[in-house]
């Protein structure tokens, strides 16, 4: 199977099923390398990867750095002081600087939706979106899909419920899209304030955890409650009330464990809010696999993309 390579990976939405399959297949190939003593391959030798993180990140940032170095690419972190991330700053000026440096890949994270697209339109480098605003986080979606496909080679008819703040979550948008595209049934649960009416029609909405349990999901995907995004808008009364109604409490955990339901979370976890501590050591909690698979998936993305002239 050989399909045309893309210049950029900005979101899941434009990807054809075959493209997703190709990346997942390559990720499996790269993951197999991790069992070897030498984990490095020369795929991107002589290529330069630049990470441009306008928003703080530890796990995604290091995951990309490790992925790039295991492909033998040179990696530079373009440090953007968070204090300079103000609306007056010109991203285009930064891009012009980067163009002069002639890097091959730019990994970008930004708090404003659409910034990776803006960069991609003005750069010859391949741009990978490492998370932009509430918009998209395509490598998270790919690693989530990869993780589930390790359990079920075919996701058709598998039931995944995403729990939490759908409104502000780029993970929810990207992961729900990829799982839907791979044939899974995707539902959501959360406070009415955080589940927009204007979401996609195929995202079935539940109002209570009891409804979710009756639906018999295969996977409960918990989203992080992002306190920093909630601001002054009163989305729900308190974290305690959130946990009681939408969290995996001890009681719900017992039920889910008895049914053998898998649990996922993009991290970092708010213990006592999205889930109780005991979940973290549950054998079907996939959080650590998600992290490990993130490296293989990101290697597959870097390997797949092809730097070149911007489309428009």
């Amino acid at each position: 199977m050989n399909i045309p390579r893309r210049k950029d990976l900005l979101s899941i939405a434009p990807l054809a099923r075959e493209e997703i399959e190709q990346v997942l297949a390559n990720a499996a190939h790269f993951k197999a390398l991790f069992q070897r003593r030498v984990k490095k391959v020369p795929t991107l030798r002589g290529r330069h990867v630049l990470t441009l993180f306008y928003e703080p990140s530890t796990r995604t940032h290091s995951s990309f750095e490790i992925a790039a170095s295991r492909l033998s690419a040179d990696v530079t972190n373009f440090s953007v002081s968070t204090s300079s991330v103000v609306k007056g700053e010109s991203i285009l000026d930064t891009i012009e600087t980067l163009e002069s440096m002639q890097v091959d890949y730019i990994i970008v994270r930004h708090s404003a939706s659409g910034v990776p697209s803006l960069i991609a339109r003005h750069s010859k480098a391949s741009v990978i979106n490492a998370g932009d605003g509430w918009h998209a986080h395509p490598t998270q979606a790919l690693l989530d899909a990869f993780t589930l496909r390790e359990i079920w080679p075919d996701l058709t008819g598998r039931r995944i419920v995403i729990v939490g703040d759908l409104l502000h979550s780029r993970v929810a948008r990207s992961t729900s899209t990829i799982l839907h595209r791979l044939g899974a049934e995707v539902a959501v649960l959360g406070p009415g304030t955080l589940i927009p009416d204007t979401r996609w029609e195929w995202l079935q909405k539940f109002r209570t955890f009891d409804e979710v349990l009756r639906w018999k999901p295969d996977v409960v995907y918990l989203l992080r409650i992002q306190n920093e995004r909630l601001g002054a808008d009163p989305f729900f009364p308190s974290l305690g009330e959130y946990h009681r109604h939408f969290g995996v409490t001890d009681e719900r955990f017992a039920h889910l464990a008895a049914e053998g339901v898998y649990i996922m979370h993009p991290g970092p976890v708010n213990r006592g809010v999205e889930l109780v501590d005991a979940v973290m050591t549950y054998e079907r909690c996939l959080i650590n696999q998600q992290v490990e698979n993130g490296i293989a998936t990101r290697m597959a993305c870097l390997h797949w993309l092809q730097p070149g002239d911007p489309a428009s």
Binding site: A13, S113, D132, G133, T198
Partner: peptide, 10 residues
């Protein structure tokens, strides 16, 4: 506010 805003995460 609508589906396109949701899609773009705005």
């Amino acid at each position: 506010e609508g589906r396109h805003a949701y899609k773009l995460g705005l």
